[in-house]
Amino acid sequence: MKSGKVTKNDLVQWLKTHQNNFLVTEKVAHHQPELLCDQSKEIKNIKEALFLPWDKLFNYHWENQQWNVDNIQPSTSPRFLMALPCEARAIYEVLDRVFLQPSETESGYAARRQGLKMVIVGCINPEPTCFCHLVGGNPYWTHPDALFILPFHDEYYLETNQPEQFDIIEQGTTLNKSEKEEIEVLRKQMEEKTNQEKLPEDAPQGLYDLFEDQEWEDLSWKCLNCGACTFLCPTCQCFDMSAEGRLKGFQLKTWDSCMFPKFTLHASGHNPRPTFKERVRQRVLHKFSYFPLREEGRYGCVGCGKCIEICPVNWNIREAVERMVKKIGNRS
């Protein structure tokens, strides 16, 4: 692990040299506007960088009295992506595990992922809607492949395992002993907070056992099933596929939402999740029970709080989960 500190000016200069291929999430832009350059592209939801809202999978056309299909080669231009730790976890902990599954790797996602260099910006002003501690994250979470940056005494602290990818690290000056300790203390505090506040180990199985609980009816009552939460969620991975164009067109992959009744509607008219109750329960349990049961305890939620922020009726997934977790084994 290589670490150091640079002046704000040096960091901004470095960002500027890459600004034509720099993506910045809305959250970073909002938290740290001084890191924005003229050309940096702001994205609302981190998943847009890899899991495109609108993605052509292949082309087809009618020619010589028969159908033909043509593959589309995914593009691989290298890009930087600056995001908060919670948002970055959506990629490392959730989306990569869905789209980079060995033997079923999605080539478009893999190509974009290969070219992506992650810059994780330590979170210094958590919002009232945030809850990354509950799901195993913390405001200083980072990944060895990424460049981690943190505002530090009018300068910026940097660390990475990939110095050749992030040459800015070479300009850094080494931290003195007390500065190193300061960083370590900050880290430790946050990790302890996560350990204290994290959902209990048995939450995924416990919630699963509460599938038939009556509380879901009550919890879903307020939800409009508008799907806004799923479209702004950095981990929501569900998608639709449709053929666009009659005699010449393409197969299109688009974001979809388990909040919509048609999501599970069978051609026969039968619907396994016919009402708000089943659909709200699906969104909560997929993230907090089914995904962790499949993926070695990793939650399918990173606690960014985006869905709580934008919900038109203030439906709060954190409150819902905490309410259900309290019921596990009738603990109160």
Binding site: E104, C238, D256
Partner: peptide
């Protein structure tokens, strides 16, 4: 079992039942 499906590869989320 029959469920509505799109991808067939456990990614699109439609046919999810429990884990």
């Amino acid at each position: 079992l029959e469920m509505r499906m799109k991808c067939g590869l456990g990614k699109c989320g439609r046919c999810n039942i429990g884990p």
